[in-house]
């Protein structure tokens, strides 16, 4: 089977996407909480959770920007087929963007919404590694949906993405929502979440 073969999507698009949506809603409303997303098959090179997420959230009215890592025929063809979405090469036009850790050297150009229409801000789907404290950034999250604080470990975030999280401009309600994906796992950091680094603690633990 060549890498650009069509694969099967959700078995029952209505119910499967509703179940996924419930999980995504939970992850978004309780930032830092890990949820699981599944789809029967996944295009080569894409995380299962990313594919499930795209089938759930994207349709012909949403424009997706693909990073060079994901801009491959097999992924593109399956996303187009199963989501009916339109792809864009223009960051400004993107409602969603899909990228792998380490790829984004800048977030310049992505839409942050306007004061009148903050919901038009871009949602970034970032495939990362969410495994344990080892060689990871430790981030402390607080804000709406979090009772006190919550810590997450994520590795390979580029400087600009970290900078976006740690030094968010005071531009609420405008901003970028972040979805961190590792295989079947999803953690969300919406624009309402305050993020600080607990790097020092993690570093001590590693040593």
């Amino acid at each position: 089977m060549s890498s650009d073969t069509l694969i099967r999507g959700f078995d029952d698009s209505v119910h499967d996407s509703q179940q996924c949506f419930r999980q995504i809603l939970r992850a978004m409303s309780e930032p830092g909480t890990q949820v699981q997303l599944c789809s029967p098959a996944t295009p080569e090179g894409l995380a299962p959770a990313s594919f499930a997420l795209c089938q759930t959230l994207l349709d012909s009215d949403t424009r997706l920007w693909l990073s060079p890592e994901f801009d491959r025929p097999g992924i593109e063809r399956n996303l187009r087929f199963h989501c009916g979405l339109s792809l864009t090469g223009q960051r400004e036009e993107a409602h969603f963007a899909l990228a792998r850790q380490g790829e984004l050297q800048t977030l310049e150009g992505f839409g942050r919404g306007s004061p009148e229409y903050p919901e038009t801000g871009m949602t970034l789907l970032l495939e990362v590694s969410l495994e344990g404290p080892r060689s990871s950034h430790c981030l402390t999250l607080s804000g709406p949906g979090i009772d006190g604080e919550r810590q997450i470990y994520v590795s390979g975030l580029t400087g600009p993405v970290l900078d976006e999280l740690l030094n968010r401009q005071d531009s609420f309600p405008q901003g970028i929502d972040l979805m961190l994906i590792d295989q079947h796992q999803l953690i969300c950091i919406p624009r309402t979440t305050r993020v600080s680094s607990c790097l020092s603690t993690a570093a001590t633990e590693v040593r």
């Binding site: 069509l6 099967r8 999507g9 959700f10 078995d11 698009s13 087929f81 199963h82």
Partner: peptide, 8 residues
């Protein structure tokens, strides 16, 4: 037959 896109 493999169901690529279930009837919808």
């Amino acid at each position: 037959f493999e169901l690529i896109r279930a009837p919808e």
